[in-house]
Design a protein around this nucleic acid. Structure first.
Lengths: 343, 343
DNA sequence: TTGAAAGCGCTACCAA
DNA sequence: TTGGTAGCGCTTTCAA
């Protein structure tokens, strides 16, 4: 119920109704309805007649009314934090490809990483009777938000970022493993002073990564210098900011492991501005393997996080939950891969 | 009526209704409805009572039912060809930022550049009673498709690509001007053999660009070698393909004007694979100024096509058409800018 | 196979 | 300010 008063709405033009189609075709409304739903219990003759009338009158099926009556839903909602981030647009691609197969129509919401927006979007989607929700939660999502959806008993799949203290269907990546692989790669190349830049330290995805970062160091018997760990917003701008600390560091690292490719791009820009050559003076590794990593310079070694697959898995899991009625929660964790790119 | 039978739908859990809220609060359904809509004609006392009941019962407003009764819509649809293309995700960003202000919830559809998908998506959205549609049409959109929407009298804004032979609201860019600027830039740098790569030659956006390409040549008094014009699908893969012709050309051009940045990225990859250094052996100019052009190597000079503004303008225009009832069509054409980037 | 009547959850309209 | 009644466009249910 947040501020219904302010919501925009607009008059619609009158549509042709099923009743009118029925009259035009000389059958009852129920018969016309059966034809609209492609029922097999209608003689070919009447079917043709009705279809013809629909065409002539320009009839458009009112799925909203149908869903209301039959208490069903043909829509799902997907909520992401940022469309302009290729990670999420790739994820969206995966979701779309899967869900359109099943015939769902998808509501898209963008939170711009704001909790308020997220709450509002979830409300609006519930009010629009979505049959299910895929949520890529903002960092500081409250348990209450999730419980609200669970109480209404609408299937939800949380993707990308896992929420603490609450059991949900979840599709994500083994970030710890990914960070470990990336860090080990740098350590094996002989780096001993590695920075970890970017990402919000309150998010689970950050914690999992830092965990892998430490594990790799431990395996190699090398200590982590915690002054080389700098968090930031998970955007390119965040990367530009975070790298300043490194540039001004009295004892500069020789390599940087970035929270994400977006961060890495910011880091590259920031280093260049400071006259430091990324890839030569300082080695950089990213995370996500977004398409741009192929064409960026220096070529970016990164960890593939398979956003499209995450999207596809989330979509399938949601569909599964929407069509079965067990309340069991599932977790799907994809394994990351290191993508080495040399100059 | 395309294949209603195959459409997935799923049972929803029973919701708390306004009637139940009314009973719980000891008021009539009409009163509860007024509270839900934040009417001023309700005493604070009853309002509080009703709101309290809503909270206790976990009431969720059913906007679908409300819209059905009041013949309104709070949704709009946006149809794009490809989410993974940053041009479109930036456009989407602009649309979202504007439309969420007005309180619309947005349906997203992706055509993957298929006419069939486009027709299906438009149908589904109409069936879901969208109040308006923003359409970034696929290359070979039929007049019929557009007329279908116009007949139902639902406002539509066509964006990015203009359709011939049909009057619609349109938001786009002066592509001719952009192509002319880019080509002139290359000509002024002394290039006399310039290729034009990528894009579908049946689309208006291609024609407008080639027009600018020719105009620039004419102004400079230089002839165009039409064997250097190669079309392709408007994707990175398309760019990789198209550049093959240039690589194998007996008389190679010294510069390439690419249909889009996506094409340019493909061209860069293709040239590198063939052992040709982009930016040195052959100069490249793109079109769109997608964010990646900042970090790509070689730095890409490009034409800014302001996707986010296009999205925002389209959203505003749609809102305007949805709230006024003139049937007048408007055209908004943004002016492109050349963004020079040096190595 | 077709038809008549009831009702999904809400708002509009009129009366009190 | 509040309440009763009708009805948005469709499906459901039962009878013919």
């Amino acid at each position: 119920m947040n501020g219904l008063g302010e919501i925009m709405s607009n008059k619609q033009s009158r549509r042709v109704t099923l009743m009118e189609v029925a009259n035009h075709a000389g059958v009852s409304r129920a018969t016309a309805s059966l034809v609209a739903r492609n029922s097999t219990k209608i003689s070919n003759d009447t079917k043709e007649k009705v279809l013809q009338s629909m065409k002539e009158l320009g009839y458009v099926y009112d799925r909203i009314a149908a869903n209301l009556r039959s208490q069903t839903s043909t829509t799902i909602g997907i909520i992401i934090t940022d469309v302009a981030n290729t990670f999420f647009s790739e994820l969206l691609l995966g979701v779309h490809q899967e869900l359109e197969k099943f015939g769902y129509t998808v509501f898209l919401g963008t939170t711009f990483d704001s909790v308020d927006n997220q709450v509002k979007l979830i409300s609006t989607m519930l009010e629009h009777r979505v049959g299910g929700i895929i949520l890529c939660p903002v960092s500081s999502t409250s348990t209450e938000t999730i419980e609200r959806v669970q109480n209404i008993d609408i299937p939800m799949v949380v993707a990308v970022r896992e929420l603490p203290f609450i059991e949900t269907n979840y599709v994500g990546l083994n970030y710890t493993q990914g960070a470990k692989k990336a860090t080990s790669y740098l350590l094996e190349k002989g780096h001993t002073r590695i920075a970890f830049l970017g990402g919000r330290s309150e998010s689970s995805t950050w914690h999992e990564r830092i965990e892998g970062f430490y594990q790799a160091h431990q395996n190699a018997g090398i200590n982590v210098d915690s002054s080389l760990i700098v968090d930031s917003s998970p955007t390119r701008e965040g990367g530009i900011e975070a790298v300043q600390t490194i540039i001004n560091h009295p004892n500069r690292p020789t390599a940087i492991f970035c929270f994400s490719d977006m961060i890495a791009f910011g880091v590259i820009i920031g280093l260049r501005k400071a006259g430091i050559t990324p890839g030569e003076d300082i080695e950089i590794v990213g995370f996500d393997n977004v398409p741009e990593t192929e064409i960026v310079y220096p070529p970016l070694t990164t960890v593939s996080s398979f956003p499209q697959q995450i999207g596809a898995e989330a979509a399938n899991l949601l569909h599964k939950k929407m069509t079965s009625d067990t309340n069991e929660k599932e977790r799907i964790i994809l394994q990351p891969e290191l993508v080495k790119r040399d100059k």
